[in-house]
């Protein structure tokens, strides 16, 4: 564990809590893509099946349980409790266009063909693109609530911090995982546009609106 990874994990945790609190406090999931949240739940479920097989540390296990529980809680809020506020008209990204390529890619490029390893690989690829339905929704409506933009920023910053962690681990432990690194870089690039607008607008107190 190093400071970059810890900060990354904290950003990840903050993102999830911000999203849950936003929905809970406003009693509404307007502007939130349920499809991205389905993909994230799938990411955590397929990556953290190792909870049953591999013990890394108490920190590791507790975080995994929190990510799993919070992702299903988010789905419950969107699709059950506050279903009436779910903006399904704007959440039209076809997730099979992400799921099918991720399945195929994880069968082609993987460290090893064990079920747990394949699920891990799939989860890494899927995580890289899981935010696309949400970004698509923001681009369709042309705006995001400030709190939603904070959520997106924290979620994007988490993987960016992990990249710094991978560079650090490469030099200090000679540890490198090509699959995670390449997917993590792609994941971070997908947020680049958003980061730019967040920094130039939201941090200066303006609303997050896409240029017309």
């Amino acid at each position: 564990m190093n400071i970059f990874r810890l900060l990354g994990d904290i950003c990840h945790l903050v993102a999830i809590i911000v999203l849950l609190l936003k929905i809970w406090k406003t009693r509404s999931c307007a502007g939130i893509s349920g499809k991205s949240q389905i993909l994230f739940a799938l990411v955590y479920t397929t990556r953290y099946v190792d909870l049953f097989f591999t013990y890394v540390s108490l920190y590791n296990s507790v975080m995994k349980v929190i990510f799993l529980a919070s992702s299903y809680a988010t789905l419950y809020l969107i699709y059950v409790k506050f279903k009436a506020t779910y903006d399904f008209n704007h959440d039209t990204f076809r997730i099979e266009f992400l799921l099918i390529p991720c399945v195929i890619l994880s069968l082609l490029i993987t460290h090893d063909y064990s079920p747990v390893e394949l699920l891990w690989t799939f989860s890494i690829y899927l995580e890289a693109v899981a935010i696309l339905p949400q970004l698509f929704m923001v681009s369709k409506t042309g705006e995001a609530e400030t709190i939603t933009s904070h959520y997106l920023f924290a979620l994007g910053a988490y993987r960016a911090l992990y990249i710094v962690n991978w560079i650090y681990r490469y030099y200090t432990e000679s540890f490198i995982d090509g699959i995670a690194v390449v997917a993590g870089i792609i994941q971070t690039i997908l947020y680049a546009d958003f980061f730019y607008l967040y920094i130039t607008k939201v941090l200066k107190g303006k609303d997050f609106k896409l240029p017309a």
Partner: peptide, 10 residues
């Protein structure tokens, strides 16, 4: 090449 600590990240 799967050792148990390889996936020690979240």
């Amino acid at each position: 090449a799967s050792n148990p600590s390889r996936h020690d990240e979240l």
